[in-house]
């Protein structure tokens, strides 16, 4: 039944911050199993788009509905009553990891179950045994099981980000939204995280929507690209469609010099 729904559907959504327009009447549909790169210059609205999709940010009144796997997140600037059910289906990865830094990596992974278990279990920290097992399996899978007992604050950025992915796995999410997941990481950690996302997409059929600054990562790992400029979607198509001219259109004239310099180097 759920397979009939899009993983993400956004219908004419606008978001303004005071006088500044972050997103203007944008519509987007992502099908289950896709791996989509959201690209665009800083302030183009790609992070806003992703945060709107999880209901972390409210759209302006008058905006259409946002749904995750058919479950409504928000509509007309108001959160749906079932937003938590919708959020539980999607794991969210943040640039700054957003782990509970004073808790262990293991506890952080278990937090992925908070949308599914009884509230009192979460509040008292009495997680069921299957969640505990899933947490260890997930940490094993992302390769940080050795650090399970350490406080998140004491780990490197790459390790924390993989912990965040483990949290999404414990959540048994059917999609991962990653907002600049590698912007704070060194190149090796960045590659690991991107490979992990690609692997989850390929092997587990997980839908992945990832905002990226680095166009080369998008070209390498994603099949579809959605480009934003000044709050509007100006390209939505195969990744191969990101030609030199199109990229210059997306990032502005100076991007020509950026590309020329990298060619020379």
């Amino acid at each position: 039944m759920a397979e009939l729904h899009s993983a993400l559907s956004i219908d004419r959504v606008t978001k303004t911050y005071g006088a500044a327009t972050a997103l203007s009447s944008a519509s987007l549909v992502v099908k289950p199993g896709e791996m989509v790169a959201l690209i665009g210059a800083s302030g183009s609205g790609k992070s806003t788009l992703l945060r709107l999709a999880s209901g972390l940010v409210l759209a302006d009144p008058g905006s259409g509905a946002i749904r995750l796997f058919g479950e409504k997140v928000q509509e007309n600037g108001r959160l749906s009553a079932r937003v938590r059910r919708a959020r539980a289906r999607v794991g969210f990865i943040f640039q700054q990891f957003n782990l509970v830094t004073r808790a262990s990596l293991y506890a952080n992974a278990m937090l992925g179950s908070l949308g599914q278990i009884a509230p009192w279990r979460g509040v008292t920290g009495s997680f069921p045994n299957d969640v505990r097992k899933r947490a260890m399996d997930a940490l094993e899978r992302v390769g940080v099981a050795d650090h399970a007992g350490k406080r998140a604050a004491n780990l490197s950025g790459g390790q924390q980000q993989r912990g965040a992915i483990a949290r999404a796995l414990v959540q048994q999410a059917r999609a991962i939204f990653a907002d600049e997941p590698i912007a704070s990481l060194d190149p090796v950690s960045a590659r690991r995280v991107m490979r992990l996302l690609a692997e989850l997409n390929a092997q587990d059929g997980m839908t992945v929507v990832v905002t990226l600054h680095q166009v080369d990562y998008a070209l390498k790992y994603c099949r579809r690209a959605v480009a934003l400029k000044a709050g509007q979607i100006i390209y939505d198509g195969p990744i191969s469609g990101l030609t030199r001219e199109r990229l210059i259109e997306i990032y502005g004239d100076e991007y020509r010099d950026v590309m020329d310099e990298s060619v020379r180097a």
Binding site: G91, F92, Q96, F97, T101, L111, L114, G122, V123
Partner: peptide, 25 residues
């Protein structure tokens, strides 16, 4: 706000947002 959003994004309820997102900080 980061950790609070991190917890919220898992679909956790308000009590758990406070217990896991706010109190540890």
């Amino acid at each position: 706000d980061g950790p609070v959003e991190g917890v919220r994004a898992t679909g956790a309820g308000p009590m758990n947002e406070v217990v896991w997102g706010v109190i540890p900080q």
